[in-house]
């Protein structure tokens, strides 16, 4: 029973982690109408920046701050040079241009840092674990990720619903021209917004650094999952991204944890292991397809801006 609860918590934690990545994606996706495949690259840049800065300064907190700054700047630069030319284009052009960005970013990082994964460990303050159930120690750092996810969700929610900036963002996404006529610099606003999305991606990368290997290509593994999350939740919906992330995290984790054992009830252990592993890899895509077949615009549909 404790095992099940622990796995459930693992699933939730994984979901929150995915939400951290998906938050920025859904923001850019929903409000600006841009599919940004390079979101994974910003995730990678955040992790690299955190690893390098932590090594220099000796402080993980400082590393995170620097990662946020770096990914924000890179994000805004990308918007300024490339993305702003894509607002009026169809999704196909956006997919391809940002695909080109991935190739560029990966190769650039290889040239700059080589092929050896970088070192980044959990800061001492968050090292260790707490007993959540009798006999079950849970890593403090994973709990910290859950806390960060909740924090990000709150911040996003507040920005969008409570601030003037959020109001402009919402207005700008529904009717760009109208807002522009009212004297708001839409171009600047979108640059800043894209930067904000990049900051979220970089933050997710920096937080992930101590948990996963900081290496070239680390973003793409997460990117597809993040897209699944965003699409399940409904593009542009922060609430949807949160629900979608938790759903994907829990389904994926519980699938890995229990499917093989479940299958062993019906078939011989050897094939159960193989098929179980295969099925659990497919599980989230099955969930996504099922959701879209029933609700073609995701769980929390938002009217998406097309410019």
């Amino acid at each position: 029973m404790y095992l099940f609860l622990e796995q459930l918590l693992n699933g939730i934690q994984f979901g929150v982690f995915l939400f951290l990545i998906a938050a920025g994606l859904t923001l850019i996706f929903g409000i600006m109408g841009v599919i940004n495949l390079a979101h994974g690259s910003l995730f990678m840049i955040g992790a690299y920046a955190a690893a390098v800065a932590t090594e220099w300064t000796g402080s993980f907190a400082l590393g995170i701050v620097i990662a946020l700054v770096v990914s924000g700047i890179v994000g805004m630069a990308i918007e300024f040079v490339i993305i702003r030319r894509l607002y009026d284009r169809d999704h196909l052009d956006q997919v391809l241009a940002t695909f080109g960005l991935i190739l560029f970013a990966n190769e650039l990082m290889t040239i700059l840092f080589g092929r050896t994964p970088l070192f980044l460990n959990v800061p001492d303050a968050l090292n260790g674990s707490v007993e959540i159930f009798p006999g079950v120690q849970y890593p403090l750092y994973r709990l910290a990720i859950i806390a960060m996810g909740v924090l990000v969700a709150l911040i996003l929610f507040l920005i969008i619903t409570r601030t003037r900036a959020g109001m402009l963002i919402r207005a700008g996404s529904t009717n760009r021209d109208m807002v522009a006529v009212l004297g708001v610099d839409i171009a600047l606003m979108f640059t800043l917004l894209f930067g904000l999305g990049a900051v979220f991606a970089g933050f997710a990368g920096a937080m992930a650094g101590p948990l996963i290997s900081v290496e070239v290509g680390m973003g793409e593994q997460q990117l597809i999952l993040a897209f699944v999350v965003v699409v399940i939740g409904g593009i542009g919906s922060v609430r949807g991204a949160l629900v979608g992330a938790l759903l994907v995290g829990v389904v994926d984790t519980l699938g890995r944890a229990f499917l093989p054992d479940l299958l062993k009830l019906f078939m011989d252990p050897a094939s159960a292991d193989g098929i179980g592993a295969g099925l659990s890899s497919m599980s989230i895509y099955i969930v996504m397809a099922a959701v879209l077949i029933v609700k073609p615009n995701g769980l929390f549909p938002v009217s998406v801006a097309r410019h």
């Binding site: 599919i35 999704h91 699944v228 593009i235 996504m288």
Partner: peptide, 12 residues
Amino acid sequence: TSGVYFIMITLA
């Protein structure tokens, strides 16, 4: 589905 959702469901 259509639009972005179509892109993503074919990917899935």
